[in-house]
Structure formats: structure tokens, C-alpha cells
Design a protein around this nucleic acid. Structure first.
Length: 469
RNA sequence: GGCGCGGUAACAAAGCGGUUAUGUAGGGGCCUGCAAAGCCUUUUAGGCCGGUUCGACUCCGGCCCGCGCCUCCA
């Protein structure tokens, strides 16, 4: 049975959907004003695996991931660039889609944009005012009254008194309570605006997610996910808004993924240790290397980014592909297998992808052993099982030969080098030399290819396979 | 100050109260014309101090160290 860590309780709990057989999942997506960094991508990949596994468990899943396409940073960036907001957001949404696709992240079932949900947002704010959870401030903004919601702070384990004592924000006079947050912002000159009962303005960030999630998934749904940093205040505020509006619970299970760090510190622009997906992919043999790296540790813990780590991921993936090499198509062994059992046990325990990957490595050894013993049919059968399992993680999705034809770029540049056909010709010539026991020539040809980053491997039966370094 | 997380071998990273994690790296062996790959085998663990227990890396307490959130942030 699947068990999931619930941030609301701090426990790993058995997962029981609200409606048997159905799961409704909402994940906070990104604000589109720049390229995705590795941290964004970790969130994408983590919830892509959650999505795959929930479906594998047989649930009818509705997966929503939103796009925040109106926000202070977007407005500022568009102004800096001197371009319309729509042009900016369209560009970065397209870039996000490309990056996600590279990493094997499938599109969510529904991908709402905040700007398309303004009517729902207005209705929600209206309801909050009616129920005494929100007020129109002297500034013209509509604010949420934190003190009207006794449960405020439950998700993040904070108490209102502590938060007030530690408040570092400039307290705006119009706020009844320094912790009150904005639902509807009065727009300044030149900013995008929508009409509202409280004058022209635009939605606050937190209310967008409450409106989109409940509009699409209902007032009470199964899982809400996002990055660790959204727990407070974003998700806390969502709870206050949604529960405030309905008077009943909002989300059953909260899931939060850990950060990507660099040198054990959070990636941030101010520290200058920031890596976008577009910075990294050109340094890799294949985008799968990044995905494998991200799944190599548990989703809740921090993960430390470094080139060394990516190199290790490359080698580990190569080992998996190597096991699958040269095997015919086959059907997996019927019924449960020890590998499948272990894999599923790992995934069932709060999506332990690190352990699931270890199962794949062990299975690869089994396949290699069978291959070495000449038991090709058996090896092929396990290879089919391997592929069924690895597709749940979205790794080892290529044809093995295609993997080995990719080369590992050096300093971000892919070596031009020799073509596949030239390599093949060289191998033929070397095989002829070997047949004639001309080992000097044979070794010379191997060295020629080695200098081009091509490694040869002589297999039994006079077959030679190759790989790019 | 408040809340929370973590310290595992050369590097990375899991599970687990007593039995090999896993990958990479190192040693030895098999295989190979020689290599490579693969397989077998093997060396390096559990921050520190106490406690519980027949037995603790695993549970409890204290200490030290690192990190995160408390402000926009995946």
C-alpha cells in the first residue's frame, strides 16, 4: 500500500483517496519571468514521478499544475525589457515546456493560468469578505484577516505571536494586523488591471492558487504539492483562504519537495550559484542524466548539485544501458518478481526513488550475469521487466545503442569527431586485421578511435560494440 | 530569538534493533591476442557522550557541527 509523507502531520501516512479509485493532485507551478533552474526542474520531475506512480497504482488521476502569469516580477521584467507582459510570459512558458519535455516530464492534465481565473478569484474574495475573513483596507487593497482564521500556522508549525514578534516586513498602516496579506491589489498606473467591486486591480499571488485548485478539483481534494519554500507563507495562506471560504478542509495531503543546493547552500541569484536547465543540458550526454541525478536521492531531502554528481549519474546510467545492450525484445517474466516487489515496496514508502534506482542496478547485474552465461532469452525477459520498472521513473527510456552514440561533451562543447559510419568502417578494418592476427594494426585502429573518444569492446563471436566516452 | 531538517565509508546516497544497500573510485581474481565491458571477490562506515537492550548506525537524552524556513522564491 502506498504511503505518503504529509507535511500537515509530519508523518508518513497510508494514502487513502477521498473518492475511492480517484486522485486529485494540484501542484504549484512556476512564475514565468525567466528560464527554469534546476530547482524548478526537481519539482517538475518529482511530481512527474508521483503522477506516473499514482497511475501505475491504478488511480484515475487528475493532475493540475498552474502557471502564474501575473505578478510583480513579471511586470517589472516586462518593463525592463520594454515588451508586453503577454510576450514575456508566452516566451518563458514555451521555454518551460521545452525544458520539461527534454527531461521527460509529461504535461499535466490541466495547466491553468492565473489570468484566466480572475472571475473565480473575484468570487472567492467576495465570499471571504462576506464571511468576515477579508476586508477592504484604507489603501484600497483587499486583505485577508489572519486573526479571523484560528488555524493559521498549522501547516508550517508557526504561531501567530511568534510570527508577529519576528515580523521583519515594514508594517503598512492600512493593515489591521501586520501578518494580513493581500488578496486584491489596487493597480498602479500602467499596470495590467481587471475590474472588480473594489476598483481596478489585480489578484494577489496566494489567492490565485486557491481559486484555480478549487475551481478545477473541488473544495476538498487529495494532494497539494510544491517546493519546500512554498509551505510558508504561500500554502499556509491558501489554506486560510480556501478553508475560510468553505468552512471545511481544503487538502488532505500536503507534499513538499526539498531544495537543490550548491555547495550545501540554497541556490540563489544573490549568491551567484544559480544554474538554469539551459546552462546544464549542453554539458550532458543526454538530459536523462539530470533526471537520474534528481531521482538518486529522496525527494524530501536537499540535493547538492555539482558536475561531479552529474558525471556519476552519467556512469551509473551507462551501466544500466549497457546491461540492456544487444538483447532481443521479449516479454517480462509473468506475475510478481522479486525485483518488482522490491521496486514497488520502495516506491510505496513515500516514493523512495533512490532505493528504486538501486533495485534497477541490482537487476542490471542479474541481466549481465545471464548474458555472460549465454542465457540470452532469460536476460531479455528480465530486460523487459527492467524497462517496465524504469519507465515508472522515466529513466532509461532510450534505445541502448542510441545512448552510447551520444557523446559526453567536454566543457560544454560536443566534440565533432568521427561519424557513426566512419567508426563502423574502422571497426570492419580492425576485425579483418584481427582475423589475420595482425594485432599491431588492430591496436593501432583502436587507438585511432580512442583518440576520437570512441571506446571499442570486443564481444565473443567476433562482434565489436562501441561507445562514445 | 521561534520552528524544522540533517550529520553514513574516498565521493554520492538508501534501508534497517541482530543477516551484502546501490553506483562511482581502490585491491585481487575470472574472461580477453592485449584491452575494454562484464562477472566474482575485497578494503574504507555511521559526528561526540551517555542511556535503554542479550544486542544500536537504527530507539531515548545531552552536546558539537552544518543547513533551511520565519521576507519574493520550486
Amino acid at each position: 500500500m502506498l504511503r505518503i509523507h504529509n507535511s500537515l502531520t509530519g508523518q508518513v501516512e497510508p494514502f487513502v483517496p477521498l473518492v475511492p479509485g480517484k486522485v486529485r493532485l494540484y501542484v504549484c507551478g512556476i512564475t514565468v519571468y525567466d528560464y527554469c533552474h534546476i530547482g524548478h526542474m526537481r519539482m517538475f520531475v518529482v511530481f512527474d514521478v508521483v503522477r506516473r506512480y499514482l497511475r501505475h497504482c491504478g488511480y484515475a488521476l487528475t493532475f493540475v499544475r498552474n502557471i502564474t502569469d501575473i505578478d510583480d516580477k513579471i511586470i517589472r521584467r516586462a518593463a525592463e525589457n520594454g515588451e508586453p507582459i503577454e510576450a514575456l510570459t508566452a516566451r518563458y512558458i514555451a521555454a518551460m515546456d521545452e525544458d520539461a519535455a527534454q527531461l521527460g516530464v509529461e504535461r499535466p492534465d490541466i495547466e491553468p493560468r492565473a489570468t484566466a481565473y480572475v472571475p473565480e478569484i473575484l468570487a472567492l474574495i467576495q465570499r471571504l469578505i462576506e464571511r468576515g475573513h477579508a476586508y477592504v483596507a484604507s489603501s484600497g487593497d483587499v486583505l485577508y484577516s489572519v486573526s479571523s482564521f484560528p488555524d493559521y500556522g498549522r501547516l508550517s508549525g508557526k504561531r501567530l505571536a511568534d510570527l508577529r514578534a519576528g515580523a521583519r516586513v515594514d508594517v503598512e498602516e492600512s493593515k489591521h494586523d501586520p501578518l494580513d496579506f493581500v488578496l486584491w491589489k489596487r493597480s498602479k498606473l500602467g499596470e495590467p488591471t481587471w475590474d472588480s467591486p473594489w476598483g481596478p486591480g489585480r489578484p494577489g499571488w496566494h489567492i490565485e492558487c486557491s481559486a484555480m485548485s478549487t475551481s478545477l478539483l473541488g473544495d476538498y481534494f487529495d494532494i497539494h504539492g510544491g517546493g519546500m519554500d512554498l509551505k510558508f507563507p504561500h500554502h499556509e495562506n491558501e489554506i486560510a483562504q480556501s478553508c475560510g471560504a468553505t468552512g471545511h478542509p481544503f487538502v488532505k495531503v500536503w507534499m513538499h519537495n526539498g531544495f537543490v543546493n550548491v555547495d550545501n547552500e540554497k541556490m540563489s541569484k544573490s549568491l551567484g550559484n544559480f544554474f538554469t536547465v539551459r546552462d546544464i543540458l549542453p554539458r550532458l550526454r543526454h538530459p536523462e542524466v539530470l533526471r537520474y541525478f534528481l531521482l538518486g536521492s529522496h525527494y524530501r531531502g536537499p540535493i547538492n548539485y555539482s558536475l561531479t554528481q552529474l558525471e556519476q549519474a552519467d556512469l551509473a546510467l551507462g551501466r544500466l544501458y549497457n546491461a540492456l545492450r544487444g538483447l532481443p525484445d521479449a516479454s517480462p517474466p509473468p506475475g510478481a518478481t522479486p525485483y518488482r516487489d522490491k521496486f514497488e515496496a520502495a516506491m510505496n514508502e513515500d516514493f523512495n526513488t533512490a532505493e528504486a534506482v538501486a533495485v534497477l542496478q541490482t537487476l542490471a547485474r542479474e541481466i549481465n550475469t545471464l548474458k555472460a552465461a549465454g542465457k540470452v532469452a532469460e536476460a531479455a525477459s528480465w530486460a523487459a521487466e527492467f524497462r517496465a520498472l524504469s519507465s515508472l521513473l522515466g529513466v532509461v527510456q532510450l534505445d541502448p545503442e542510441a545512448w552510447f552514440r551520444c557523446s559526453q561533451p567536454v566543457d560544454g562543447a560536443v566534440a565533432e569527431g568521427v561519424s557513426d559510419a566512419q567508426i563502423q568502417a574502422c571497426i570492419e578494418a580492425r576485425l579483418a586485421a584481427r582475423k589475420a592476427k595482425d594485432f599491431a594494426e588492430s591496436d593501432r585502429l583502436r587507438d585511432v578511435l580512442a583518440a576520437q573518444g570512441v571506446v571499442l569492446e570486443d564481444k565473443p563471436g567476433g562482434v565489436t560494440s562501441w561507445r562514445r566516452k
